[in-house]
Every structure is written in C-alpha cells, then in structure tokens.
Write a protein that binds this DNA or RNA. Structure first.
Lengths: 174, 174
DNA sequence: CGATTATGTTATCATCGTCAACATAAAAGT
DNA sequence: ACTTTTATGTTGACGATGATAACATAATCG
C-alpha cells in the first residue's frame, strides 16, 4: 500500500472522507455535512463514497463513533487530572466537550442514536460512557440525574437559551 | 372570505401550510419537513409558499412559535391541576410534552433558537417559558438546575440513551 | 500471466429549496 | 361602474443533493 502521488486508487478514502465530513461538521453545524462536498474535499467523485459507506447515515454514524472515542479520552483525562470529585470533574468535562465541538456532540447524542437498531455500535459507545459516569456517581439514580443535568445544560447553552458563563456553570454543576 | 370550493385563492394558505408542516413534523421527525411536500398537502404549487414565508427556515420558526403556545398552555394546565409542588409538576409536564411531540419539542428548543438574531420571537417565547419556571422554582439557580435536568432527561430518553420509564422519571424529578 | 475482486469514474434520476416571469383574484381609487 | 393597484397563485427553470447503474482500472491471488 504505497499510496504515494495520485493514483487511481486513493489509499485510504474512508478515513479521508471521515476527515472531510468532520471538518464540515465542526465548521457548519450538523446540516452542513454533505456527501458530495466531502468527496470533493477528498478529491474524489461523489459516487466513490458509496464504496465505503452504505449511505449518508452510515457516514454520519461512523463519524459519531469516532466522536465517542475522542469523548472517552477527554473524559478520562479530565477525571484523572482534576483535584476534586471525579463526578463533578466528569460533568464539567462533559459540558466543556459539548461547547468545544457542538456538531460532534449533537451528532453523537442526537437522533441517530435513537435509531440504534441500525447502528448498534453507537448505543454501545453511549452505554459505555454512562457506565464510566455511574462508577464515579455511586448509584444509578445519581448518575442519571447528573447526566441529565449536564446534558440539558450543555444543549440549552448551545441553543442560546442559557448564557455561556463558566462561573454560572460551575455553580450549577457543583 | 367564502373560500368554498376551489378558487384560485386559497383562503388561508399560511395556516394550511403550517398545519401540513406540523403533520410532517409529528410523523417523520425533524428532517421530514419539506416545503414542497407541505405545499402538496395544501393543494398548492411549491412556489406559493414563498408568498407567506421568506424561506424554509421562516416556516420552521413559525411552527416553533406555534409550538410554544401549545407548550405554555400545557404547562399552565399541568401546574394548575397537579396536587404537589408546582415546580415538580412543571418538570413532569415538560418531559411529558417532549415525549408526546418530539418533533415539535426539538424544533422549539433546537438550533433554530440559537440563531435568534433571525427569529427574536422565538427567544422571547423561550424566555417567557423560563420566567414561569423560575417563579415556581424560587431562585434563578434552582430554576436553571431544574430546567437543565428535565431538558437533558427528555432528550436522552428521546434519543434512546435512557429507557422511557415513567416510574424512573418520577424518581429522578422529585 | 491471467482471473477475480476492490475501488473509482461517468452518466443519470428524483427531490429539494429558491427565484423570475406571468396570471388572476380582490381591494382601492376615481 | 370602471380602472388601477396590490395580494396571491401558477409555470418553468436552476443548481445542489442523495442515490443507483454501467463501466473502467488497479490490486491481489491462483
């Protein structure tokens, strides 16, 4: 797999398409991801994408899965570094992640997840994230309450219903 | 305004388009709302919609505004009827509304709200909803915490991350 | 080296949001 | 009452999108 220069074959189109879609996601929000535009960025014809993804939704699901990896890493790091309660640290990191990468975040926990019959890997990733939270929270109810709170606050801030004020967030989380 | 039979003019196209879009929203989720399909349902040509809405986003904003009216009514009724704390009753009604009309709910509190420079009426409606909650909660922080919690729980349930179990919800809310 | 498989390309379709040009009904002015 | 203006529809087009079929080329394997 030399993949040097510009051959007929791309080398790793799948990754290139994901990269392009990722950039679109970060830049223009959720609806800005277009299969054709991603293919254009990867320097490839529109139909080429269908050799690697069944349809657009599959591309988005793969993107969300990628997001969960970054998410898990960010959470682990935050919990390890923070001084106080790991539960609170995790909540803080959750909101920080959502505010830093709104598109990724919305995609990961968005309607795509609901139709997880089609994307079982996604629900598995989400469940794993919850399991980690539950370990810190000590109890299922507390974990669910915490998740609900940070998830809701993150989205309300993203949607402009609540101001993005880190002092305020800290008060609400702690 | 006889509007009987089929005349060249429709009578109240604006309302008819909103009704059609509303049906699409309830049925097929958020992305299922199409200007052309709504026009088709209203028995009118696609371009006719542009006499009443600047673009698709304006149609959606009007739909969201309509949603806020129904939302306010539902909340008021729930608070009046409930026996216990109005704060808890409001939270319960919030989640119930979201689960009953996912499309409406997502539209109302979704990314459309964030770009409220374009739709000031929407942000006003959302602020009014929060003011009512704050009155029941007794204090801004408590209100924000409550809002965040029910908002997050509602969305997590809608997206299949948390099971839709009303006993569980009751435990988490109370 | 030759056959099979993996991966791209071109061409085409239906649908969508949107606009310009035109048509008709209703309202307003005289 | 007749005419002019305005409100509201229609037709037809454009560019973009997701998707598929038919074809072309490269990589892999016997």
């Amino acid at each position: 797999m030399p993949s040097s220069g510009k051959s007929y074959h791309h080398g790793d189109l799948r990754a290139a398409l994901l990269d392009a879609a990722d950039a679109l996601l970060d830049q223009g929000g959720d609806g800005a991801v277009s299969l054709r535009e991603a293919a254009r960025m990867a320097g490839v014809s529109p139909a080429a994408a269908y050799r690697h993804f069944a349809d657009k939704e599959a591309l988005l699901a793969a993107l969300a899965l990628r997001g969960f990896e970054a998410f898990g890493a960010a959470m682990g790091q935050a919990v390890a570094q923070a001084g106080g309660s790991p539960y609170v640290a995790r909540g803080r990191a959750y909101i920080r992640f959502a505010l830093a990468r709104p598109g990724r975040f919305r995609l990961m926990f968005g309607p795509l997840l609901a139709r997880s019959g089609a994307h079982p890997a996604l629900q598995a990733a989400s469940r794993q994230a919850f399991a980690a939270l539950q370990a810190d929270a000590g109890g299922r109810e507390a974990a669910l309450r915490g998740w609900g709170l940070v998830h809701g606050l993150a989205l309300l801030i993203l949607d402009g219903a609540i101001p993005d004020d880190s002092d305020l967030i800290e008060k609400l989380i702690r």
